[in-house]
Design a protein around this nucleic acid. Structure first.
Lengths: 243, 243
DNA sequence: TCACGTTGTAATGTATGCAATTTTTTCAGT
DNA sequence: ACTGAAAAAATTGCATACATTACAACGTGA
């Protein structure tokens, strides 16, 4: 099925589901492409080029980019176009701090409000996630492990938290894609399964503890110690500056 | 100074500051108009009408509305236009729950990272806020008391939290405008001043406690007990339905 | 050779016109 | 009158053309 055809039929793209206007489809495609690292951080997102690729006008592309910009997964520079965000180490730390705060609340609320149907759904998602890693599809795996946390936020029944979680999860995926070391499995599905169990049985404190450790493990697998290459000249040569 | 002139000069609008393209100006104007209740919840935002008012094309209006939509302060209904959001009581409760979570974290971080200059700035903001209420400018007062909490988030030095806070504060202002009872002063500047003092002296636990009480007081002044009129027929006649 | 201003090109910002959809109005039938 | 269908009007979605801005290449003068 060509991209153009997908635009006419209103079927959602892979994981990301949303129906309606055309920019939803474009949004979802770019979104997935970034999360699955088919678009590297820093890549310039040319409006006309994207328009030709998706067979739509710049108007539609522009709207999609605007939305991605609001989620901080692309950066919109006035008069200079959009680029895929490339979070600095400091920004990455801020995202993880924010996530700890939100995930704690989300977990507590999810324990209170989760329905049986939602537990079923999220169980299925973990299975699918594991399948992705088994077959070596790292990109889709990262995306699905993110969607696990999104589903959790849905179970918390709090729209603002869900929206914020959406933004944080996207940014986290970007960070993982950029800073993950080794290449080992990031989100161990085992931890995801334990979390589900704790939530289902209503063990709030335990669920929160599991979640915090889970986040610790994710962050521990990253290379956030500042050893990576930098494009900030001042930072690179800071040791030479006396002041 | 006419609106058109303000569009050409790049001066920011009142409190909301942001420079760059035209939709920034339009965004800020509509934003302020909503927070100051010159635009009532539920008001339809006609693109062409707004375009004539601001002397710009629908393209610009559209972009501004899109951004307001992402902050959940206007609702974008595909093919049916945008309306000023009118949060339900349940949504209002969700916003307050989210705010408690974020404000706690923000306060803790602000205690850790606040600079003297920032303390000065926020002191000035409280003075200005008080002046607004003294002179009876309720709308500007609501907006400024919101900006107090935004400034706090800036002091926390965490970009994602700041963004989220921005959205939550906007929504809170809408909720206050919609549900506040009596008409007494909502955000007592006294509480704001106490908070500043606690933050300045580094008393983290006390600052958080003050903040939580502050939020309690705000919510207490609202009429969220479901006595208000509703436009949801099912909700209105739910007591008649046996099921 | 380097600094710096100039010009040309490419990309973004904005306006406008047409197509598709929704909402309102009209009007026949009961 | 009231209901419901059909036509008309209004409004949004999208594409395209033009204006404006940033970037790069080039050339000039020290």
């Amino acid at each position: 099925m060509s991209v153009k055809e997908q635009l006419s039929t209103n079927k959602p793209v892979k994981g990301t589901s949303k129906a309606g206007t055309q920019d939803d489809v474009v949004y979802a495609h770019i979104f997935d492409a970034i999360l699955e690292q088919r678009l590297a951080p820093g890549t310039k997102l040319n409006e006309e080029a994207l328009g030709e690729i998706f067979g739509v006008s710049r108007t539609v592309i522009r709207r999609a980019l605007s939305r991605l910009g609001h989620e901080q997964i692309v950066i919109l520079r006035p008069n200079r176009g959009a680029v895929v965000a490339s979070p600095t180490i400091d920004e990455a730390r801020q995202v993880f701090l924010a996530r700890r705060i939100v995930e704690q609340a989300v977990t507590e609320q999810a324990v209170l409000h989760a329905t049986k149907e939602q537990i079923e759904i999220i169980r299925g998602m973990v299975v699918e996630e594991q399948a992705c890693f088994d077959r070596g599809d790292r990109g889709a795996g990262i995306r699905l492990s993110g969607e696990f946390h999104l589903q959790l936020a849905k179970m918390a029944r709090n729209a603002p938290l869900l929206n914020f979680q959406r933004s944080l999860v996207s940014q986290t995926s970007l960070i993982i894609a950029q800073y993950e070391t080794g290449g080992k499995s990031h989100c161990s599905f085992d931890e995801h399964n334990q979390l589900i169990a704790a939530i289902e049985s209503g063990e709030q404190a335990k669920a929160v503890e599991l979640m915090m450790h889970h986040l610790d493990h994710i962050e521990a697998k990253l290379n956030l110690d500042g050893e990576g290459a930098s494009d900030d000249l001042h930072a690179v040569f800071s040791h030479l500056i006396s002041r």
